[in-house]
Amino acid sequence: MDTITHTLFGLGLYGAVNKRDMDKNTKRAYLLTAVGASQIPDIDVISRLWDTEGLYQMWHRGITHSVFLTPVWALLFFLLSFLLFKVKDKKLFLLGWLAVFIHNTSDLFNAWGTGYLEPFSNMRITFGTIPIVDLVIWFIMGTAFIYSRRNKLISPYYFRVAWAFLLVHVIIQSTQGFIIYKQYDDQYDQVALSADFIPWTFSVITKKDDEVIIFNDNLFKKEETQYVLQSRETADLDKLFSQRPEARTLYEWSPFVVLVDDDERLGLYDPRFYRNGQSFLFEYIEKNTER
């Protein structure tokens, strides 16, 4: 999910806590833990600073997003709460654990995926049923905030209801995505799903032999063909990989790629992010020149 959504998750967790009998420092500790732990897995973005081998694509949402690391992050914020605010409350550890778990698990549902089982498996797990920016989640959390301001005495109730609605939203959206995915699974060699910003609407990316077709589909209308792409499966990628190590990482990271080998470029791209004639995950070299 995007940074705003993870922040909303943290604020939503903080809002769901009954803080009526808390002093100022305890409230600060809970706010730091709820919001900070909801963001901490994305600290991996700093790995760009020392990435000299084109591995950032694999590092991002890698080990920091592992479900096995969630208690470690929770312990970090438990200790920070004690060091900064002198608050020692075991519920802070549980809150931090829940916040990190929600971050890592929610990222499974969009097309980018995570290394959820690292270090025991480097497989990228992705369901593709929820968009990275989900305006429905924003609306649900925003509504809870508005109602909580109107009646502060029962403020946690509104956020707890919001979490229930959010869970229902994810279940409904993901169930529809799974049904659509199964409709294509038997017809193509490979299938991937990417949720659109419009609720209950999906891009279905299929590959059979050297042809990649991207459909727009939902359960309430006939599918529409958006793009038909040709992949040059016989392309020799050795030169590409030697000059652009990021290309090898993308090749290993993506469920499948489209290979480009024409008079101008040798490269590959992830068709899940193909929009308006190009994917923003595209690694290539110019023919006869160095990029």
Rank of each mutant, 00 (worst) to 15 (best):
F78Q: 09
T175A: 11
F68Q: 03
Y184D: 04
T52Q: 15
F82S: 11
P41Q: 15
G115T: 07
S66I: 11
I63K: 03
D186W: 04
Y147M: 05
H60A: 08
A111V: 15
V133I: 04
F93V: 12
T114R: 15
K208A: 09
W97H: 13
L166T: 01
W163I: 01
D51C: 14
N104E: 14
Y56P: 14
T7P: 13
L259D: 09
V67A: 15
D107T: 08
A34H: 02
F197M: 07
G12T: 06
S242C: 08
K91Q: 11
I285P: 13
S148D: 03
I140N: 00
G128S: 11
S231N: 13
L94S: 10
S121Y: 09
L193I: 06
L193P: 02
I40V: 12
L92F: 08
F256Q: 05
A164Y: 00
Q176S: 04
F280T: 05
Y251M: 13
D21Q: 13
V260T: 09
E290R: 10
N18Y: 05
F202T: 01
L98S: 05
Y188C: 01
L266A: 12
G10F: 04
H169R: 00
I214P: 08
T206V: 01
N151H: 02
N122C: 09
V191N: 03
I213N: 14
I154V: 08
R124K: 10
T201S: 11
R275V: 12
D262W: 15
I214L: 14
T33H: 10
D196I: 02
R20L: 09
Q39W: 05
G15D: 11
P199L: 00
K239G: 06
R124L: 07
N18F: 02
L135E: 02
D217R: 06
Q183F: 03
A34G: 10
S121A: 14
T126A: 15
V260M: 08
L32A: 01
F120D: 14
T33V: 07
T52D: 15
R160C: 10
A37Y: 10
F178W: 05
H103W: 09
S47Q: 06
R20H: 11
S38E: 06
I63V: 07
R20E: 11
L240E: 13
L219W: 12
D210Q: 06
K208Q: 10
S242M: 13
T175M: 14
N151W: 04
K208M: 07
T129Q: 05
L13K: 03
T175D: 10
M141K: 00
L117T: 12
D21L: 15
L79T: 03
K207H: 05
N104Q: 15
V168P: 01
F256I: 07
I43S: 10
M22E: 07
S38N: 05
F9K: 07
L83V: 06
P131C: 00
F159N: 07
M1P: 00
L31E: 03
Q226A: 14
M1C: 02
W163D: 00
S174C: 01
T52A: 14
W138Q: 00
K287C: 09
P119Y: 13
L153G: 09
P41L: 14
G10A: 13
L108I: 15
L117K: 09
K88R: 09
F178A: 03
Y184T: 00
